[in-house]
Design a protein around this nucleic acid. Structure first.
Lengths: 202, 202
DNA sequence: TTTTTTGTTGATTGACGAGTCAATAAACTT
DNA sequence: AAGTTTATTGACTCGTCAATCAACAAAAAA
């Protein structure tokens, strides 16, 4: 019963199934058979469309990344002030989506993959650069030249907080994480004011 | 030629070989055969002493953790002021040791393992709690009651910076990381002063 | 209508790997 | 000396899995 134009349908089905299976296994120890079964087709077809396991994983990584990117863009679109922009990035980064089992698993395993698979490493750097650009853009009006270094620290802080939250025994929703990071930012902003105050005090 | 008392020798040889193999593979996709071969024995012996692959991995994780713990304790012993204590923790956390291929691989894969293997998760939480305790202890004299929340953020920041540094294309030595984190701390300490200044300004 | 392209799978290949076991041997105990 | 514990391995079992292939079916092109 071959209907034509199946390729994109099959491919997205495989990508989604891959992410779900990675979540179920908690690792990349997932067989093409399991993926294909969940996607409702034979293993041969999975190989037909993707050519191999690694390419399926890379496609899954791209998918996760593009989901996150869309979430950030969506939140960012509605934000007008720099503060709102920052909050939008944080809320998108710590949304419930990103704490779903499969998504956490995908991210952790992508870090592992990024060590050895050049394609995976490239994707990870794309994510990091995009985050850095978004943060710098939001911080510039508040911090001027100091925006870039603060954005670098902030990016690392986001990753670190996510890592801990994702692996904590009782994961709270992301609000506590967002608040914690905003507190850090408050300290950084405070610096500017301190300089002014010191000037006024003299 | 069975000399007695081989058990501890064989076990540590296996643990070290495991870590090296994980570094070589970049993942836990490592066979007992490879580990045993590198450790200079048969696979049967590896199974004899550890009972299974998972227990070998857990022993390796324990080993990495104890190495890190020793490094921190060593650095901490020589530190007398709170500031020195903090710097000791940072220097130990970003020492060259922790950026060796095998060590990075081990950490990344242990994060993955911690999702599904209870023993691994427990070990990870031991690490996190110990780090938090060390940080809180060092921060208390400077920050008083605010030591705990700042220590939580600082712990996450350390993990996040390590993650990025470990996966960056040209890894610098840890000095830049340490400096970045100290800058964050400076902002936090600044807060206290700001409060005082504000009081004085009124 | 023949041919080509696209979709699809069951069956197979070829390889690898975790864990077990029986057997061998040295050292220690009684 | 006989028996027990510890060390050690080669060979084997049983299972899995990625990748390939031949073959079938339907739609589109010629």
């Amino acid at each position: 019963m071959p209907k034509l134009g199946m390729e994109p349908i099959r491919k997205t089905a495989l990508v989604k199934a891959t992410i779900l299976e990675i979540g179920r296994a908690g690792s990349l120890d997932v067989t093409v058979g399991q993926i294909a079964k969940r996607a409702g087709m034979s293993t041969a077809l999975a190989h037909h469309y993707f050519g191999g396991k690694e390419q399926i994983f890379l496609a899954a990584m791209r998918h996760i990344l593009s989901l996150y990117g869309a979430e950030v863009r969506g939140a960012l679109a509605a934000a007008k002030t720099p503060e709102a922009r920052l909050e939008a990035i944080l809320l998108a980064s710590f949304s419930a989506t990103n704490f779903r089992r499969e998504v956490v698993s995908a991210w952790l395993n992508f870090y592992v993959l990024a060590q050895t698979v050049p394609g995976a490493r490239r994707l990870l750097h794309i994510y990091q650069r995009r985050l850095h650009a978004n943060l710098t853009h939001a911080l510039r009006p508040m911090l001027g030249a100091r925006a870039a270094p603060v954005a670098r620290a902030l990016g690392a802080l986001i990753d670190g907080v996510y890592l801990r939250e994702a692996l904590s025994e009782r994961p709270s929703d992301g609000r506590a994480s967002v608040a914690m990071i905003q507190a850090y930012l408050a300290a950084e902003l405070n610096r500017e004011k301190t300089t002014e105050l010191k000037g006024a005090a003299l």
